[in-house]
Nucleic acid binder design. Structure first.
Lengths: 247, 247
DNA sequence: AATTGGTGTTTCGTTTAGCGAAACATGTAA
DNA sequence: TTACATGTTTCGCTAAACGAAACACCAATT
């Protein structure tokens, strides 16, 4: 009816998840009710697959890999490219770092590294917002050739309920011009009160339709922080493989 | 060396996770490279275990159960009791709702239902804070018999780096007295700037060492909201199984 | 030094669990 | 009616999974 060894495997995983702390093999065997060699074979397999690790003697534990199985991994290549950059920013600022890409006139969130701080900005990969309401979308649009940018602006849904600040296409054009000139995009409490975002295009990495942003609650956002973020963006850009001259 | 059928099982799960959308059996078989009966047996086992579902014809999909395996599920009974209450509050306020319990002189977060709003307060189950720094801990302590409360106050680690506001045991006693009298606890930007929490004890439900709190960013916290939360707490308490007279 | 106990790993004879080609069942479209 | 797609079952075969027992190593105690 069901595959016995698969069932055994999941009962091991579930026991470990319920317990929550690393456990020695003997305790796991007693808790799950399996003989040690059987359990050992299962754990070894899970360890090979990356779902279980052996931290110290007496410490078999689940890894994060199980959690990431539930996540949307559709943008594998872009995510691989962006991850090191995102991790650098996350390590330096401990704020939520987002990877977004342009899809039609929307910004689609493709990957997120969340801040470890308890008050944070949360977006799940897969969420979409009108491009002009997000720092990500603005950074991408600003980095596009003018012809394409104008077409985007012409199609932007300015009547979208999320959009608050930008009422005319001329205003959007001005924002994108400014964004292009300084090399980064900003969005401060426009779509959601209490949140600010800064973003830069991944065009110098060969991904003109993608961008990375750092978002944070407003109480952690100030002049000095913004300057530090802008400097960090510039530093990353200087090291891009195709560090093109800013148009 | 490794258990073959377990490896096969995880390659199925990983393929489904990568693809991100529901898939028919034939496509799964081609994508993973397994014969249909083999795949069918694996999927049937995973379906029995709750990790995979069959939504429609041609739609095998992952469930949320894999993600929840990564979560801490140590407090099953208490969590079961508290969940309906937490869900009521979450449904009404769409803020992060926490379940905490007293462990020594610490508040331990046992369960969390997060707000659907993007700016939110995040705490993972398993995290611990000194009881007197959290609304949860204060609500629990305030609901305890006086003798036990005094012992707790005497042992509170007032020098803990997280604690900012409460400098003396007399001050803590006053806060707990006030909490006890009005039936709910509050903590506004004391431990983390930008966050406020209100909490009530689960003592009327037979759980004197547990409490539920609602936490939110400060920009969503005001007089009217607090009053609504306090009213909701009172309503829940009026319906508690052992709705004891407040001591 | 010997013994005990704990953690983790390997050996090896047994047997049945998992395998997969083939067939079947159902539904839809041409 | 035929063709095709999705899903499910049958059944002979064999090697994968099993688990008792043993082993390896380390630390603490007697």
């Amino acid at each position: 009816m069901a595959i016995e060894v698969v069932e055994k495997t999941f009962s091991v995983l579930e026991f470990m998840a319920r317990h929550g702390q690393p456990l020695p093999l003997g305790e796991l065997a007693a808790g799950v009710g399996l003989p040690k060699p059987t359990l050992y074979r299962i754990l070894r397999t899970l360890r090979n697959l990356g779902y279980v690790e052996q931290r110290e003697v007496g410490e078999y534990a689940l890894t994060e890999r199980l959690v990431s199985l539930g996540r949307n991994d559709r943008f594998h290549h872009l995510t691989q490219l962006a991850r090191p950059l995102m991790q650098r920013l996350h390590a330096e600022f401990d704020e939520t770092v987002n990877l977004g890409l342009l899809e039609g006139t929307y910004t689609l969130y493709a990957d997120v590294i969340e801040t470890t701080q308890a008050l944070r900005w949360i977006v799940k990969p897969g969420v979409r917002d009108p491009f002009h309401t997000t720092a990500l979308g603005r950074a991408i649009a600003a980095g596009l050739p003018e012809e394409r940018r104008s077409r985007l602006v012409a199609k932007a849904d300015l009547a979208h309920p999320v959009a608050r600040r930008i009422k005319t296409r001329a205003a959007l054009q001005r924002i994108l011009e400014e964004t292009r000139r300084r090399g980064w995009a900003v969005e401060e409490e426009e779509t959601v009160t209490g949140v600010a975002c800064l973003a830069f295009s991944l065009q110098p990495w060969g991904e003109p339709l993608a961008a990375i942003s750092v978002s944070m609650p407003i109480n952690r956002y100030n002049e000095r922080r913004r300057a530090a973020l802008v400097a960090a963006f510039a530093e990353l850009r200087a090291k891009a493989p195709a560090a093109a001259v800013t148009a």
